[in-house]
């Protein structure tokens, strides 16, 4: 089982409930904006704590309220690509890319850095400040940064937003190329249908 996610989470007035068991390598979570897709990703990455539930990905229990398991975000080995990218503004692209790699304790990434950078066409951006990147460039750097921290699985939040059609194809090829469980969330069901083996509707 790649994904075993049962959680209930409360954000202000909104209650989020999710119960997914899936063997698909690429799982998509779809639903309209504001339904809580990003909150689910935060629960999985450890940045938020669900009220209750159990999160097991690739055989590793990350959270289990019944057993009192709550692995710290830095130890979940999740490669997160945030919808708002969150590149570090005071570090050049190269230093953004190496941030997680340096903390990976020598674990190898699922894809070599040189191959990743050429696939995403960002090898020439290394010396740039994040503030000077276009939206699409920043998105591709964020994807590379998440992969280079040698994660066990990927969490992608609206991964194809601000990527043009040809870049979206590159993303699809990348998702195909790396052999990691991937959970992606999107409001655009048509977009993810061709990427994911299993689509779950939220809300």
């Amino acid at each position: 089982m790649s994904f075993e996610i049962t959680l209930s989470h409360q954000i202000g007035e909104r209650a989020i409930a999710l119960d997914v068991q899936s063997n698909a390598r690429v799982l998509a979570l779809v639903g309209p904006s504001g339904i809580g897709k990003t909150s689910v990703l935060h629960c999985i990455s450890g940045l938020s704590q669900p009220a209750s539930g159990r999160i097991v990905i690739a055989g590793r229990t990350l959270f289990d309220s019944a057993q009192g398991i709550d692995i710290a975000p830095q130890d979940r080995r999740a490669g997160v690509v945030f919808q708002d990218m969150r590149l570090f503004p005071h570090r050049k692209v190269a230093a953004n890319l190496s941030y997680g790699a340096k903390l990976a304790d020598g674990r190898p990434a699922a894809i070599a850095q040189s191959e990743l950078l050429s696939l995403l066409d960002i090898a020439d951006l290394q010396d740039r400040w994040p503030a000077t990147l276009s939206g699409g460039e920043a998105r591709r750097v964020a994807i590379a940064r998440a992969l280079l921290c040698a994660p066990d699985f990927l969490l992608l939040d609206e991964p194809s937003s601000s990527l043009d059609a040809s870049r979206a194809d590159v993303l699809a090829a990348l998702i195909e190329r790396i052999d990691l469980p991937i959970l992606l969330v999107s409001h655009d069901e048509a977009q993810v249908a061709r990427l994911a083996g299993h689509v779950v509707r939220l809300g």
């Binding site: 990455s45 940045l47 830095q74 945030f82 969150r86 570090f88 997680g100």
Partner: peptide, 18 residues
Amino acid sequence: VDRRLIGAARTLGASRWH
């Protein structure tokens, strides 16, 4: 300092102190 950046750092493997 945008706290979301700290969240991003945590997911990349950084402890609170790092």
